[in-house]
């Protein structure tokens, strides 16, 4: 890990914070409001790769934990990690890692389909795989109930995965950071 890696990790963590301050944006022609921050998690892995991407998310969560109000909606502090939905926050780390891993493995042939496979598996599947059982256990509610409650967010997440995949491809063309 050289200086460049450290700075990429730090500035991407700062970018995640910056995205939290953006009011929900809409997609052209669709009109669904999207919070930019959760997309940043898919982008961290897809742009920086597995290790650096996951570390930038860890760093971002550390900044939230030490008391900066960086989560979208101005949330932050130790309290957010004590709540029932904390599993989703922790899942971001592994999610970003998996997105990065899939992107790295398929770097040479990376096209929109591969990028989307990465953002869906890492950014949606992994996040729910960790977040839902955590919610179910923490809130002592049946797994199925936690599952159905969380499913409301899936359509929005799929749109985020599509947008992230598109951005990952564009960044690969103009400013590639993953060397394979």
């Amino acid at each position: 890990m050289n200086t460049k890696d450290v700075v990429y990790i730090a500035l991407f963590a700062a970018l995640l914070a910056g995205l939290g301050a953006v009011p929900p944006l809409t997609l052209p022609n669709i009109g669904v409001p999207i919070t930019a921050q959760t997309m940043g998690v898919m982008l961290a892995g897809g742009i920086l790769g597995a290790k650096r991407g996951a570390l930038s998310v860890v760093l971002f969560l550390v900044l939230v934990a030490v008391g900066l109000p960086l989560l979208s909606g101005g949330r932050g502090g130790m309290g957010v990690f004590a709540g029932v939905s904390a599993g989703f926050l922790f899942s971001w780390v592994i999610g970003a890692y998996i997105v990065g891993l899939i992107v790295e493995q398929n770097w040479e042939r990376l096209n929109f389909v591969w990028a989307m496979a990465a953002t869906i598996v890492g950014g949606i599947f992994i996040v729910y795989l960790i977040g839902i059982p955590w919610l179910a256990i923490a809130a002592q509610m049946p797994f199925l109930k936690a599952f159905t409650a969380s499913m409301a967010f899936v359509p929005g997440d799929i749109i985020k995965a599509v947008v992230s995949a598109f951005v990952v491809i564009q960044v690969k063309k103009s400013y590639p950071l993953i060397n394979r």
Partner: peptide, 23 residues
């Protein structure tokens, strides 16, 4: 300014360029 791709892409590229300079 409400188009998420038009905001994200230039932001990310500028961030990465700045990161390279800082490093």
């Amino acid at each position: 300014d409400r188009n998420i791709i038009a905001v994200l892409l230039p932001t990310i590229i500028r961030t990465l360029k700045m990161a390279t300079e800082v490093a």
